[in-house]
């Protein structure tokens, strides 16, 4: 359990901005270990420490990125090479939406062109699939009147 908590805390530290992580992550991890070792407050501390780490992560990323970059003769400029958490989130959202699109296209194709996706009963049982009958719930169109009947109605 303790190693899992440590792993989770390390993952949180890895998501911090590079500059902050390089300066403080080792000390933070050391304090995390020390506080977990402290028997007096072990029960309540682990959750508190993880929450504290997440709060620090949010604070560090939410801060405006006004950095005092060191310049030497206007040629050297420090580049922040950290991968911010919001970019990971954006990438995750893009991947998730692509998967959703593919799934909905697959569902649409399987309904519109049933012959393409007909599965035999054995496979359906193996893959725990059920047929979705959307069209059966739609109202059936009224039968069209013949032109002769229409004419008879007009004459009346």
């Amino acid at each position: 359990m303790r190693s899992f908590l440590r792993l989770a805390y390390r993952a949180i530290l890895q998501l911090h901005p590079y500059a902050f992580r390089a300066e403080f992550s080792e000390e933070m991890l050391w304090i995390f270990d020390q506080q977990l070792r402290d028997k007096k407050s072990r029960d309540s501390t682990s959750a508190h420490l993880l929450f504290d780490g997440v709060r620090s992560l949010v604070t560090q990323h939410a801060k405006p990125r006004i950095q005092h970059t060191e310049t030497v003769n206007r040629y050297y400029c420090e580049i922040d090479s950290s991968l911010p958490a919001f970019r990971f989130t954006q990438a995750g959202m893009i991947v998730l939406s692509c998967l959703c699109c593919l799934f909905s296209i697959g569902l649409f194709v399987s309904m519109m062109i049933p012959k393409l996706t007909v599965l035999d009963a054995a496979r359906q049982k193996d893959w725990l699939l059920t047929r979705v009958k959307i069209f059966s719930s739609l109202p059936t169109p009224a039968p069209q009147r013949s032109t002769a009947n229409l004419r008879a109605g007009v004459n009346r």
Binding site: F20, E23, E27, M28, L49, D52, V54, S56, Q60
Partner: peptide, 11 residues
């Protein structure tokens, strides 16, 4: 205070 709050403020 936890290490996160400590080092945020120390920085």
């Amino acid at each position: 205070i936890g290490p996160g709050t400590l080092y945020d403020n120390l920085k």
